[in-house]
Amino acid sequence: MLNIRDIAITYGGNSIPTVEGVSLEMNQGEIVSIVGESGSGKTTVIRAVLGCLPGGGRVIRGQIQFEGTDLGSLSRDAWRSLRGSSISMIFQDSGAMINPIRKIGPQYVEYIRTHQRISKKGAWDKGVEMLERMRLPNGDNIMRSYPFQLSGGMRQRVGIAMAMTFQPKLLLADEPTSALDVTTQAQIVRQMMELREQYNTSIIVVTHNLGVAAYMADKILVMKQGRVVDAGSREKILNNPSSDYTRKLLDSVPVMGGDRFV
């Protein structure tokens, strides 16, 4: 379904690619976790799949195919209809999805109505329903709030609700739960897994939480300095990592009741 072939990506006029030699093949209904160093290019890779690299970012080598089509060859209009409905993204920083100076409700209604013919009232109700499915109590009040009136985790769940509105075929989730408490995190992880069970959604989840990565994934990629340093099944990565970096990461995971700093 998704085939990333040996891509390289640069920002601005940089001569050295930020990301190089990344490949990934995914089937419908598969879940892949990407973990790794901060700044290694995880966000860059999944933004490239969505075709929205910021700051003059460009794919300079390789190809990304989605259901057989080369995404690099798509027209703007084709992109617009794909984005949000077939492929959607939960951004690491909810600010990238939500305009900070407009209330949530009108933004959500507008988002729904660019992808579906539906009345304003219908879109409003759909928005409220999605927010409540993300465990936001009192969805109507959230719709009437400005982003600054919500906590960090509440804003993040607004972004998750938006991304899941149209049951995309491919969900790109960039740190979807790192702003959430553990019980809400567990719930959202379950919701994402349910998307797969019910709609056979494929998911790429980028996360620093190796427990979440391992729990969700069929396959794990480990990135460092713009390259994939380890890839394989969950069992392989956890039990037989091939790179020293993966081993170092696994050793650094904080453990309940484990070593203490103070």
Binding site: R135, P137, N138, V182, A186, Q187, V189, G211, A214, V253
Partner: peptide, 27 residues
Amino acid sequence: MVGAVFDLHMDFSHPIRSIDSEAPSPL
């Protein structure tokens, strides 16, 4: 909360525990 923590040595075939019921609103 302690029961809802994901860790590397958990049993991945079991659904993660959490609180199911809805959170009340601070309103």
